[in-house]
Amino acid sequence: MSSEESNNPDFVDNLTKTTKALGLDTEQDVLFHSIDQNKVLDWSGILEHKEPIVLAFFGSNLTGFRQTQVNSVNKIGIHTLFETFSMREIVEDSTKKAQFWLSFKALFGK
């Protein structure tokens, strides 16, 4: 998510609760990472990762990332890319929150 949103405790708490609700361990299964929206996303190392990983992008203005349809799942080799609304949109808009939740659950087979 954006650096601005990752500095908001309510947004981080919301995402932590969401991942825990899916049975993901926030210490072992999840890595929260922020990126400045004006910086280009650095893909180095990601595609070479040997185990499948899921990358979830919150917000649509990450430079260097090909914007896809919101809440869509894209495969790149063995890896899965998921782009969704910003955390602000998810927290403040109940319709977007429901759309995100259904898609995010399906992403993890729940």
Score class of each variant (00 low, 15 high):
3 S>W: 10
3 S>L: 14
4 E>H: 11
4 E>L: 14
5 E>Y: 10
5 E>W: 09
6 S>Q: 04
6 S>A: 06
6 S>R: 03
6 S>P: 00
7 N>W: 02
8 N>I: 11
8 N>W: 05
9 P>S: 15
9 P>M: 08
9 P>Y: 12
12 V>L: 14
16 T>A: 09
16 T>H: 08
17 K>Y: 05
18 T>Y: 00
18 T>C: 02
18 T>R: 01
18 T>N: 00
18 T>H: 00
18 T>L: 02
19 T>Y: 10
20 K>N: 10
20 K>P: 00
24 L>D: 01
25 D>E: 06
28 Q>G: 09
30 V>R: 06
30 V>N: 05
32 F>S: 02
32 F>V: 03
33 H>C: 07
33 H>V: 14
37 Q>M: 12
37 Q>L: 15
42 D>K: 15
43 W>S: 09
43 W>C: 05
45 G>I: 08
45 G>T: 07
46 I>Y: 14
47 L>K: 13
48 E>V: 05
49 H>V: 12
51 E>L: 12
51 E>C: 03
55 L>R: 05
55 L>Q: 04
57 F>C: 01
58 F>N: 04
59 G>D: 07
60 S>Y: 08
64 G>S: 04
64 G>C: 01
67 Q>N: 10
68 T>Y: 04
69 Q>Y: 01
70 V>D: 01
71 N>V: 06
73 V>S: 08
74 N>Q: 13
75 K>G: 01
76 I>E: 08
77 G>F: 11
77 G>S: 13
80 T>R: 09
81 L>F: 15
81 L>H: 10
82 F>S: 00
82 F>P: 00
84 T>D: 00
85 F>R: 05
85 F>Q: 02
85 F>S: 05
86 S>Y: 14
89 E>Y: 02
90 I>M: 11
91 V>S: 09
95 T>C: 03
95 T>L: 11
96 K>R: 08
97 K>S: 12
98 A>S: 14
99 Q>G: 04
99 Q>E: 14
101 W>F: 04
102 L>I: 08
105 K>T: 12
107 L>M: 11
109 G>S: 14
109 G>V: 09
110 K>Y: 07
110 K>G: 06
